[in-house]
Simulated assay, not measured.
Amino acid sequence: MTDVLLCVGNSMMGDDGAGPLLAEKCQANPQGEWVVIDGGSAPENDVVAIRELKPRRLLVVDATDMGLNPGEIRIIDPDDIAEMFMMTTHNMPLNYLIDQLRDDVGEVIFLGIQPDIVGFYYPMTDPIKQAVETVYQRLAGWQDHGGFAQLEAPEPE
């Protein structure tokens, strides 16, 4: 069974480049048996390729504003993405992408990295580079949620 790592983000937008940096690291020196796809800022363009792979699990990694300290990493329940109005820089909200793939993928895991600065031509900050390295190191022995904590959804008002 195949495991797919979908890295999402725009490397020209500072910390939003976390996903592409992870893809670059994995392509240079693979960790584990992951099929790595750099989805860039339009990951919806990769839906057909992911479906054809029929992965056992899909790990989506993206810089996501979760209201945490820069570089903090959390597993986000895909069902919470829309409800929490998570800000991303992508053409399509990631919950739509995940909904499109749910029937073709055994398990979808969404991993968010809290960015600090997202803006054109800003360099990536050190906390985000360190977070990408942490994720990269955990890929080889990935089990369950890779040892990352679940993001707590806010209580409904």
Score class of each variant (00 low, 15 high):
Q31D: 03
M13W: 04
Y121M: 15
V105K: 01
L21G: 00
W142I: 06
L5A: 05
A42Q: 10
D38K: 01
V8F: 04
S11F: 04
G67V: 10
V60I: 13
T88K: 06
Q143W: 07
H145Q: 12
P43M: 05
L59H: 01
M87N: 15
T64C: 12
E157P: 14
C26Y: 01
L111C: 11
V47C: 13
T64V: 12
P93C: 04
L6E: 00
V132C: 09
A28D: 13
E83G: 14
A131I: 14
R74L: 12
L101C: 00
L5V: 01
A18G: 08
A49I: 08
P93M: 02
Q150W: 11
M87V: 15
A140W: 08
T64N: 07
G39K: 06
T2Q: 15
T134Q: 13
T88P: 10
P70W: 04
D46W: 04
A131V: 12
D104I: 04
I128V: 13
V60Q: 06
I128D: 02
V132Y: 02
V118H: 05
K129V: 14
L97P: 07
V61S: 00
K25W: 05
V35Q: 13
I76N: 03
A63K: 06
G17A: 09
I81L: 07
V105D: 00
M1Y: 03
D126I: 14
P156L: 12
Y121D: 15
I50N: 00
V8C: 06
E133S: 14
L21N: 01
M13V: 05
V36S: 04
F120L: 15
I50F: 03
Q27M: 13
T88Y: 08
Q137N: 14
I128G: 05
